[in-house]
């Protein structure tokens, strides 16, 4: 469905003549299958949103693709969204690939009725010949998602946070896209509402057999909804695998830390947090980017950067600790 190869996307800013590169996505490779839920995890500002933006081909300055490809296979045709622009990109968006932006509370125009917004989003891709047909289509779509048709008559401020997010999801799925990119779709919502929104996303994904990419720093949500999970650290994927493997047997030290910091029922011990802060992506450390915070760091980690290497079926890790051991094991 989608293949990303060695993708590097930097924010290139210039201030007082000094140019600066924020290497928010720095050599990411991944492959997504049809009909799967792919989770992307990692702490704040590790580049999750930037990665998902590049998957959508949204390179508004100062974000620029420096290297790599993002290739969709759509109806038997390969399309690299880092290479196309304008009308061609517009045709792919929403009909094939939809993107629900981070910030569920503010995705809807506050001075426009939801019906009008539906109208705008629909007309962007299909001519509306008949107002009645449009109305029927909109109601039908909401119905299918289990949302009341009255929301069409509302302004955003009249809806609850959960309903706003559901409406944003409804807008993103108007044309049954093959890939849905959802950035922190539940972050601002309380736990009960979160569950409803996730169920909605999951249901749409199952019914349309689409690929759902869900970004959140909340490991609990990945455990619930994802088939596979990628852990990002400082602009790179450090580990990727099936959800049960990631949670059952985390290999990368950073993943281990993330899993251990999850609250467990009946566990009253305080969570240990790794010392130090995530690196500045304008000037990341050499070698393994995690080494300043890694309890297992060895001299090689400071010099060389570990590749994201396959260690088993559907399992990739970027850590010398794991890859050398595995290699030793294999040989």
């Amino acid at each position: 469905m989608l293949k990303v190869e060695n993708l590097k996307a930097y924010y290139q800013t210039e201030m007082y003549g000094v140019s600066r590169n924020v290497r928010a996505v720095d050599g990411v490779s991944l492959e997504l299958q049809k009909n799967e839920v792919y989770g992307i995890a990692g702490e704040s500002s590790c580049g999750k949103t930037t990665l998902i933006r590049t998957l959508f081909g949204a390179f508004d300055p100062p974000l620029r693709v420096v290297e790599g490809t993002v290739t969709y296979s759509l109806d038997g045709e390969s399309v690299d969204v880092t290479k196309i622009q304008g009308e061609r990109l517009r045709q792919i968006r929403w009909k094939q690939v939809s993107y629900i932006l981070q910030g569920s509370m503010s995705l809807l125009n506050p001075v426009r009725k939801i019906r009008k917004t539906f109208w705008d989003f629909t007309r962007a891709h299909e001519p509306i010949t008949d107002a009645e047909k449009f109305e029927a289509m909109a109601r039908n779509h909401l119905n299918r998602l289990g949302l009341p048709a009255q929301v069409l008559d509302s302004y955003p401020h009249q809806l609850s946070g959960g309903m706003k997010q559901r409406v944003a999801i409804a807008l993103a799925t108007l044309f049954e896209p093959k890939v849905i990119l959802a950035d922190e779709p539940t972050t601002a919502l309380d736990v009960i509402v979160q569950r409803g929104v996730l169920q909605l996303l999951k249901r749409i994904q199952r019914e349309t057999q689409s690929t759902l990419v869900i970004v959140t720093h909340d490991m609990g949500i990945h455990a619930n909804i994802a088939d596979r999970v990628a852990i990002m650290y400082a602009g790179r994927i450090v580990e990727e695998g099936r959800v049960k493997h990631i949670f059952g047997d985390p290999l990368h030290p950073y993943t281990k830390h993330l899993i251990e910091s999850l609250p467990k029922i009946g566990d009253k011990s305080t969570r240990t947090s790794i010392p130090g802060a995530p690196p500045n992506l304008g000037d990341p450390p050499p070698g393994c980017r995690f080494h300043p915070r890694c309890p297992y760091a060895e001299p090689i980690c400071r010099r060389e950067s570990p590749h994201l290497a396959a260690v088993a079926n559907d399992r990739r890790v970027a850590c010398f600790l794991v890859t050398t051991k595995e290699n030793a094991h294999v040989s």
């Binding site: 932006l101 125009n109 001075v111 426009r112 989003f121």
Partner: peptide
Amino acid sequence: EDYVTYAKYAGVSDRTIMYQYVMKN
């Protein structure tokens, strides 16, 4: 604002975005 970016990404026409999304607000 997020709602402007969202509409842009969805392919809503520049004209509609400028008058209905940007100017009105």
